[in-house]
Amino acid sequence: MNSFTPNEMMTIAAARALSNEDVCFVGIGAPSAACNVARLTHAPGITLIYESGTIGTAPDVLPLSIGDGELCETALTTVSVPEMFRYWLQGGRITTGFLGAAQIDRFGNINTTVIGPYDKPKVRLPGGGGAPEIATSSQQIFITMKQSTRGMVEKIDFYTSFGHGDGGDHRARLGIATKGPVLLVTDLAVWRPDPETKEFTVVSLHPGVTRANVQETCGWKVAYAADVEETPPPTELELTTLRDLNERTARAHAAGKGS
């Protein structure tokens, strides 16, 4: 077995959670890498959808943006953005929405809007984009992000995309019928919500990772499942697929001219 980085483990562990039957609404960055590794390994039949309107896309390199030409050229069909959000997302046709996050809390609520107060932000982040409705209209949500005490916080500064709110049946009380966050994959661990409280709970530690590592990089007190497993290390195929994809991507993105 080759050695691998925590980032590679994160992407590969996230990829494994996707199946051939999934219709996946793909966020840019780490989610996009995981979705395409799944497509190139165990889930060749997966339907990948990007919010630019591309349905059933199969990019050879990872797009830099959600609307790169590669996505349209390899898609089954490309629809308008209003149609994407109305018929395909709001219509309930997405099985899994796959999101990244700047800030997250233990209930899978996501902030990508501001650090500090909304009216006087310390840092103005890009905002929600498609995420607020992806979070509530997809049948379920996967989240992937690197662990840090800045990113995984006791209280997020802004509720951009609703996860499980204050936990328990908070989604149902707001009239949200979908499952919400069911999986969080970080560079250190795999987390799933507790069935009752909905607090994210570590179910699997990546190889070589200790509980102390997880706690040091998380702003809330980490809860663990009764049986915490070790995440199986990347296989040769998974690792080669991811590295080849990243290499092709880096080559393609460096090829532009600049101004």
Partner: peptide
């Protein structure tokens, strides 16, 4: 959100005063 603006443009094209959609639930 994107869903809101996409719906709002569509409503504008359709000559409607507003757009209605299932959105912003739990969103601040």
């Amino acid at each position: 959100s994107h869903a809101a603006m996409a719906n709002a443009y569509e409503a504008g094209a359709a000559g409607l005063p507003c757009a209605v959609f299932r959105g912003y639930r739990g969103a601040q």
